[in-house]
Design a binder for these strands. Structure first.
Lengths: 213, 213
DNA sequence: ACGTTCACTTAACGACGTTAAGATAGGTCG
DNA sequence: CGACCTATCTTAACGTCGTTAAGTGAACGT
């Protein structure tokens, strides 16, 4: 079926062109300032055309984010090679923070906006998406650390530890993104804030003389 | 000047009625979902009337937030009575987190949205507002802790320590607000997350056998 | 009594996301 | 080859939003 395949390919190409145009505008101006009309103008189509390929604006933007977040998930793979769970934790936090600070609009849409109530259909779609993978990846690192006896005796719950680490890094990233230009806070270089947070989290969670793999 | 005063008082009352109506809608639905038309309908005026009393929607909502945040600043005053700087830190973090979790839409507008580039005029207006006060209050606590030798030797910068503490608490609060209904993260009670974060921050920042006042 | 001031309204503008209806190209099948 | 069909893209519009220009009218000072 040559012609049928060619049609499908052309449709996919138009879809990608929309996606690329939207991503460029989105990365530059954020989701509030991107309009469907702008995206359409960029690819020289009518706004209506976008709705042939995407359900609505939200779907379009989330697809951009999902796609780019899997780049982050890919980077995490290198972390698994580190032997020490605590070193894995440090590296994961650093990669996550860098990604957030370098893709601020992605990060804002994914982690700093209100999520809609999850419909059952949405829950199904979420299974195995990059963000869930990243969280699960973190939990696995913590479990390895727990098994190796790295953490203080008062910390036993892998989910709670993982959430605390996530919250710490997320706090640095999101505070930066939303408050960087506040005139009454003297921020150091972002990398220094991130490293300090990681140091504090590790020092606060692990016990002295914890085993190193 | 009896009549002149009465007119001013009436104007102030109308202003307050707008403010109250807006706050109620805002607290319930968040800033994205509140419309000027709804606010106007609630006080039985025309939308245009709001612009007699407020510059625009943003000014109106920020005035609501500023006003309510000074309630938080007021609560901080009780903290100053605690003798130990580390206890002050714990209490401040707890009050801040509770306020954020109980006033989610306020918190989202103040700390989870993009700030506009600060114009010189805006900087001037910001001097001495509740949020700046809160940050400065935290820095003072840290400085007291530094003077008392509470912190580990690697932590010497009061601003950096304060920002790390702020980021940690902010991370817990903001992650909750934006991601609470994610189906693939098992959150404990919010209070437990907050306390864990405070414990980890304190354990990670202070040294063993730190002096207690 | 007259003119002024100013809180408030009417009407409208322009931009937004989105949709119903139609055009028009291409492929399918007699 | 020609009639039908499918599916992409367009035209035109709807309803909503924040905001503003141009009044209106009652209360004020003189």
């Amino acid at each position: 079926m040559g012609p049928k395949e060619r049609i499908e390919k052309e449709k996919a190409e138009t879809r990608d062109r929309i996606l690329d145009a939207a991503r460029e505008l989105f990365a530059e101006k954020g989701f509030e300032a991107v309009t469907m009309r702008q995206i359409a103008q960029k690819i020289e189509y009518t706004p209506t055309t976008i709705y042939v390929h995407f359900k609505d604006k939200e779907s379009l933007l989330h697809e951009i984010c999902d796609r780019d977040f899997s780049l982050l998930a890919q980077k995490f793979l290198a972390v698994a090679k580190l032997a020490d769970p605590i070193e894995q934790l440090r590296k994961t936090g650093l990669l996550y923070a860098r990604f957030g600070l370098e893709n601020r609009n992605h990060y804002r849409l994914m982690f700093m906006s209100l999520r809609p109530e999850p419909t059952p259909e949405l829950i199904e779609r979420k299974k195995g998406n990059p963000t869930e993978d990243a969280y699960e990846f973190l939990v696995q690192i913590i479990k390895a650390g727990l098994a190796a006896g790295c953490f203080r005796p008062e910390h036993k719950d892998a989910q709670l530890i993982a959430q605390t680490v996530w919250a710490g890094i997320h706090g640095v990233v999101s505070l930066r993104i939303s408050n960087e230009c506040d005139p009454w806070v003297k921020w150091p270089a972002a990398e220094r804030s991130v490293k300090t947070m990681i140091d504090v989290l590790v020092a606060g969670l692990t016990r002295e003389g914890a085993p190193r793999a």
